[in-house]
Each structure stands twice: as C-alpha cells, then as structure tokens.
Design a binder for these strands. Structure first.
Length: 578
RNA sequence: GGGCCCGUAGCGCAGUCUGGCUAGCGCACCGGCCUUUUAAGCCGGGUGUCGAGGGUUCGAAUCCCUCCGGGCCCGCCA
C-alpha cells in the first residue's frame, strides 16, 4: 500500500491501525474533527527515542563541534563502581560525539590535593587507624601508602582504578590536581579568583544560611609547618602570596602557625566551589557528568555556573547529573568500605556488563548492585540484549532500537558484527566446578550445543566467562550452589545410604558401563532405575549426590554425571556396595 | 527551607522527556508434557484500580495541578 504522506522518511504515521481504526471510531463517537486535525494525527512522526548519551552528544553538537568532557573523583578511598558513572558517562558521550561527526576528548581528573577529612577503610581499622590519624586535614597526595608497593595514599587507591579503565574500554586522559597546582597552571586563575573574592563570596552567600565573613578568600593554603590544608584560614594576599593562619577545622586542630603560601607553586589550592569552575576554564570543559550532590539547587554546579560566567568569563559545561549506586542495599561509600571496585568486577563479571549496568537505565535513576544471585540476572539480561541485537530473539521495533543502542554502548570498542556464542552463566557456574581441563570444558560445551564450530574468539569468551563463574562461585555464590566432588568416598555418606539406595547405585554403575547416555537420557534413566529397584526417585538422587559430593543435593544429575569422568563415576558407585 | 529520584503483575524493573498499536520484560508463580524433574528441561498461561484525586485532550502510565507513601541529596565540607 502506498501512502502519499510517506514520501518523507521521518513523517511516518505512528501506526496504521491508528489511522484505519482510529478515525471511524472517532466519528462514531460523535467527534467532529476537521481534516486538518486528522492530518496532524496522521502525520505524527515515529517518536525518536534517543538514548540519553546521544541526547547529550546532540545537544553539545548544537553548541560546537569540538568538546572536552570532564570527569573526576576525589581520591578519598577505594574508587568503586559507583564512581564509574563519572568516567563511563564521560567516555560514552565522547564516543557518541564521534559517531555523530563531532570531536571529543574525555579526561579523568584525580582530586588528589584535597584534604583527608575521614580516614577511609581499610585504614580506619586497628593500628592503622592510629597511624593515619595524624594525616587528617593533609592533602591526599602527601599521605603515605599503607603498602610499600604503592608510592603514596593516592597511588594506593587510584592506581587499581586507573589501570582497569582500559579493560573497560575507557579512553581518557588522566590529570592530577596536585600536579596541576604544582605546575603553576592554576596560578593565573587563582589570582583572578582572589581579585574577585568579594564577587565570589556574594555568589556563594546567595545559597548559604550562614554567610561567609568579610575578607574571606577562596583559597586554602597548605600550612608549611604541619602540612595541613584543611586547618588554615586565608587572611590576605599580595603578589603571588596568600598569608594564612593555621587555626584548625571542625575535625582536626591547627598548629597555630602563621605564614605565606605561594600560589604559583602549589602551596595551596582554590576552595572546591571555585576550583571547579576554574578547572572548566583551564581545560576548556564543555560537558561534565557529576553526582547528584552537585546537581542540587544551590549546589556546587549552580554556584560554579555563576562563578564561571562572572569571574572566569566562561560557560559552565553541559551537565549530566547521575544518581549513586548502592551495594546490596547500602550506599556505596569508600570511607566506610562499602565498595566494589573495578578489579573486583573483572574477577566475576565481564567488563561489558558494567557498561551495560550503567547505560541500561537513565542516569538519574538509582542503581542497585548485588554481586550475589542478582548478578546471574544481569548476565542473563545482557545476553538477551545481545541476542535481540543480533536478531536472534524477537522484540518490538521500539525495544529493539533501545536494546541495540544500549548494547553498542556496552561494548568496549567496536560492536561485533556477527552473533557471539555465549555460555549461559548459570551453566558456567556448574561446569567450572566439574571441568577437568579446558579441552574437556570445550567438548562439554560443544556436546550441549552451547558452542558450535567455535572460533578462537568464541573459545576465549567462553573461558573468560568460565573464569568469572569460578570466581563468582567462590566469592559471591550462596553455599547451596557450591559443591566439590569428594576425592574419596566418604564413609559418613555410605552410612547414610539404605540397602536399596546402594543397590540402585550398583545398578546405575552397571548401566553406565554397558552403554552411553546423553545427559537427558541419563536423567530419565535414573527415574526408570529408581522404579525398577523400588525406590522413590528423590531417594536415588540423594544417593547419587551423597556418593559423589557427600551431601544430599547437587546440580541436575544427568547433566552432572555426564560431565564427570565416566570411569570415575562407575567405580565410585561400585565402591558404595562392595 | 530547597531540590532530585521512585511508586506499573508476588518481587525486580522497562515504557513517561516526544500522549496513540492489545501496557511490556526478567524472575517467581500456575497448568500441561516425556508414566517420573533438585541446579541449562520443553510448551502454554498475565495473575495489573500503571500510588490517589482532579484537569487538558478525540485519546493519559505518559502532559499540568494537588495530595499520599518511600528513599536520597543540598543548606558545613564536595
């Protein structure tokens, strides 16, 4: 059927049924619609449901072609997957910009010159806590590492994160706040801020219940005597110097020292609310994701926007606020040790899954992560999205479009062209506990139809998943999903078997040696056998598990036995009733 | 005091920006199947006042207003 208004590819009617069924219905219902009105309904284009990453990229392109996307975190402890929103989103926008014909560069900025307000986990436990107390109020970069393998506190917490970024397909330039201050690059902007201290104070006071005092300066000097940053109050400034007194703060005492800090040499820093817009100016930031704490009215983004405009004469970046991630229902917190880090993620889940986790829902939607059983669902969901992407699973056009984009954003780099062969993670958790070696695992996977004529990369993916499954079983799985084939027959297990159960096992051993079974055949055979020897099926199952595992339940039996070495199973069953 | 998010099936959620096809997905559940299923079974089934009320509209889960419930953030400091 050809419809005249379909000439424009965009102006497709939403659906035909609306047109065909809708109008008569409306007439029947007594509505007197003018043709124009009907046409407007008909011409309604298919709604273009864009992923929020693309929406951000599109908005940026309206402003210009080249963009700098910022992300950054205060290195106040372990950097966890909640923090990843920042850098993952920044990188996602960069990628989307590129796809839309723009240019983007993303960076990650370590706020490593901020003072330590609280001793983070795990340094807040035992004797370490005592040792680290003295560093309260000092910049992170000047605090030693608890582990000699790392240069300092910042290296200790940030390096595992930074080094993992590549594994997640993140391409960002790394900056260090401390280094930037020490290099003198912030000197000019610091001077500008000091010159406009009154203006800045007025901006900040708009949102403060307790106004900043007269003579307040937006600068935190580093005390040359005690090395603290949080304790000083800036009194005045001249040339390149800010004079200060080390008075103390609410969480740590000052040393009383009075001195001068050279702001061209990194002897102090701008206070956060001013530092942020100064950084936008310095690095030409045009887009930045940030946590909802900054996004609140009167928060640092609001004041930063005004300071940027009025003091630094630049525009605030396009904001992408995001919600936080909780871990098993608790708010992730590096200081309290409620963390799940990137290296931890890689142990138990594929990197694509974390990207998927972040990009699947809107940024301001709170996310909940649970590495336990819920991770299985995440795997299944990811696999499903992948299958929809490759057209192996049917989905509505709208859903398909949405899934495809999320799938693309979840890829580390290029989106695979051909369908990927996946081992279902749930099966991987069983296989990894019984497989003898890689060759064996492959043959099992092939015999199950989970791998068909696998390529090298299919095999690689399968082993990556098996390795994740192994780690997951040992670290996050509930006890009932863990099992270990008993090295020798446990006498305790034998004692728990009835005479009939023993007979059943002996017979099963005989049957196994007389012919081959597929897993399903074997499973069915167990039922038949139970009946033959006068047992209820569950009793025979229990016997099998007791003999093999030393406990009463285990993975699906036919499956399980056929993965084990046949000779071993036969002799184990025979052993039960010598 | 201000702001944000959430409220849709038993549970977890998508859909809301940009109103429109029969409100969808996963898990759970229910029924059936191979005489029999413990952990890759297979097939079938939606079990729903879209938090409440009002408004706009030919049409509202979707837009507007009010309210209720839950969570979080800011108002010190990132």
């Amino acid at each position: 059927m050809s419809l005249p208004w379909r000439s424009s590819s965009l102006a497709r009617p939403r659906t035909l049924s609306v047109l065909e069924g809708g109008i008569p219905f409306m007439r029947l219902a007594g509505f007197n619609l003018t043709p124009a009105k009907i046409l407007r309904v008909q011409y309604k284009p298919t709604s273009v449901r864009m992923h929020w990453i693309d929406r951000a990229a599109k908005a940026l392109l309206k402003r210009g072609k080249k963009h700098v996307i910022a992300s950054g975190i205060s290195v106040s402890g372990h950097i966890h997957i909640g923090h990843c929103n920042d850098v993952f989103i920044a990188d996602g926008v960069r990628r989307a910009l590129k796809e839309l014909g723009g240019e983007g560069q993303a960076f990650w900025y370590a706020d490593d010159f901020d003072p330590m307000r609280r001793i983070p986990w795990p340094l807040n436990e035992g004797e370490l806590a005592e040792r680290y107390k003295r560093y309260l109020g000092m910049p992170y970069i000047n605090i030693p590492s608890p582990d000699s393998k790392y240069e300092n506190f910042v290296d200790y917490f940030a390096r595992p994160f930074i080094e993992s970024l590549d594994d997640f397909g993140i391409e960002v330039k790394i900056y260090s706040g401390a280094k930037i201050y020490q290099s003198g690059k912030m000197a000019e902007l610091t001077k500008t801020a000091l010159k406009h201290a009154n203006k800045i104070r007025a901006i900040l006071n708009r949102y403060r219940s307790k106004p900043l005092p007269e003579g307040w300066l937006p600068y935190d000097a580093l005390c040359e005597r005690c090395g603290r940053l949080a304790t000083t109050r800036s009194l005045s400034w001249h040339d390149n110097y800010v004079s200060y007194r080390c008075e103390g703060s609410d969480y740590v005492a000052g040393c009383g020292h009075e001195g001068e800090a050279d702001f061209t040499k990194g002897q102090g820093k701008l206070t956060w609310r001013v530092e942020w817009p100064a950084r936008w100016k310095l690095l030409g930031v045009t887009c930045e994701p940030f946590g909802k704490d900054h996004a609140v009215v009167g928060g640092s983004y609001d004041t930063g926007k005004l300071i940027a405009k009025q003091v630094f004469k630049c525009n605030a970046p396009y904001p992408v606020p995001y919600e936080w991630v909780s871990l098993k229902g608790r708010r992730m917190s590096s200081s309290e040790g409620v963390v799940f880090t990137l290296p931890q993620w890689l142990e138990t889940a594929e990197p694509e899954l974390l990207r998927y986790f972040i990009f699947r829902s809107k940024p301001m939607k709170a996310k909940e992560f649970d590495p336990g059983l819920a991770l299985l669902d995440l795997y299944d969901e990811y696999d499903l999205v992948e299958q929809v992407h490759f057209g192996m699973v049917e989905a509505s056009a709208r859903r398909k479009k949405q899934f495809k984009r999320i799938y693309q954003l979840s890829q580390l780099r290029e989106t695979p062209r051909r369908p990927v062969q996946r081992v279902p993670f749930r099966f991987a958790t069983v296989l990894t506990q019984v497989m003898r070696d890689e060759k064996h695992a492959i043959s099992v996977l092939i015999s199950r139809g989970m791998l068909t004529d696998p390529s090298e990369s299919d095999i690689k993916l399968a082993f990556r998943r098996l390795s994740c499954a192994r780690n997951w079983v040992s670290k996050h799985a509930p006890e009932r999903l863990r099992f270990k084939v008993a090295e020798t027959l446990l006498t305790e297990a034998v004692q728990r078997l009835t005479k009939k159960q023993k007979q059943g096992l002996t017979q099963l051993a005989a049957d196994l040696s007389s012919r081959d079974f597929t897993p399903i055949e074997l499973h069915n055979h167990i039922y038949e056998l139970a009946q033959r020897v006068g047992l209820k099926a569950p009793e025979l199952f229990k016997a099998i598990y007791l003999a093999l595992l030393g406990r009463e339940s285990g993975p699906r039996a036919g499956n399980f036995i056929s993965v084990l070495d046949k000779g071993f199973v036969i002799s184990r069953f025979k052993e039960v009733a010598p």
